[in-house]
Design a protein around this nucleic acid. Sequence first.
DNA 1: TCCGCAATGTTGACGGCGTTAACTCGCGGC
DNA 2: GCCGCGAGTTAACGCCGTCAACATTGCGGA
Lengths: 214, 214
Amino acid sequence: MSSSENRTSYHHGNLANALEEAGIGLARAGGPDAVALREAARRAGVSATAAYRHFAGQQDLLERVKQRALAMLADQMRAALVKVPQVGEPGDIAIARLYAACWAYLGFARDEPGCFATAFRRTKAEAPPDDGGMVGDDAFRLLGSLVDALVDTGRMAEEDRPGADLATWAAVHGVAVLLLDGPLRHLPAAAQNAAAERTLDTIVNGLTRRGRAV
Amino acid sequence: MSSSENRTSYHHGNLANALEEAGIGLARAGGPDAVALREAARRAGVSATAAYRHFAGQQDLLERVKQRALAMLADQMRAALVKVPQVGEPGDIAIARLYAACWAYLGFARDEPGCFATAFRRTKAEAPPDDGGMVGDDAFRLLGSLVDALVDTGRMAEEDRPGADLATWAAVHGVAVLLLDGPLRHLPAAAQNAAAERTLDTIVNGLTRRGRAV
DNA sequence: TCCGCAATGTTGACGGCGTTAACTCGCGGC
DNA sequence: GCCGCGAGTTAACGCCGTCAACATTGCGGA
């Protein structure tokens, strides 16, 4: 299927990609600790040090795999969005879309824990801050646009908009982490779903109300 | 100061503790990836394999260090709580205490990023689920008691109580992670503080309001 | 008192990892 | 035709986790 095997010539031709692909496989199976340069090279049918022609080192490979995992997460969210029926009040649709994206986020964390952990692993080799402060997290921008829709449809006050995307992201990411390997990791699935739903309700509740506490 | 040096006899006497102490130092400086069995043993003035008399392996040591880091986090929160003035309305005090604990949480993540990352690193050797589902996270219980105070003082409806502790924890943990190595990691400190404050406001806002969204 | 044994610490070795240095292959341009 | 340079190779170093076999100690029972 992929380009990771049956090499005939001395040169591989697509090694950087094959290594990243292998890295994704390793991350999927064993989390970020499992993405090893040597093993990735082995799977690509190439000697260990060949990777250094395409990556600065193991941390660099890990960073690329991390970016791919983040992209997978964003894809899952987008895929869930297109399934949301566009019927009813615009405000209701906007809220349904926000919920769908959050559930997709949690589903990705549950179904692909290795990739999820890799997506949020701290890396020593940083990606350049491409847009002045925020690094290129597609999922974050996506969430922001969904929050924008809350404002556009009148479900959220405009003066509450700043920082609302961060609050949403923080809540859903926090609950994902806590369910995955936090204090709730041993709860039955039903209880986990209930806890997650409660958290989403709380944050949306907080967002869609005018004014501030305290 | 500690018991990690000047050993005179063949036996160390307090090796398990010394290794954990060394592990904390490693985690502090380099995060969970830096807590290596050999290096910890070296710092304790002992041969590498001596550690196996007290730990099942490196993952076991890491698990202990993780538990210690979690305890440090809880200590920071408790320390912040005793400084909250107990004047004014009980409801206001309860909210001030919740905020203080959350800020302590974020402060710990900022000031001790290595320990913070270690506290939430997934470990292969699990601690036994001691109280039936929830593992012994002191900080989580502490947060729960602070939310209880919201109910007791009438700031939160009793029917909204279930899951409210999780929502709070998720939000504050999420914002900590996102500030530390998420999309906001390069923001200036003032902007980070503002973002954190906005998130805390949102979650408390959502908690202290009756009813649900949608 | 002394002796044996279990707890504790040691040395040595193995395989895997990341990384560097020095070498080789072969395609594309002159 | 050759030659330069990108792409891949082998060899080696030091670090890590871990196992097996051995050494030392101190403590409790005869």
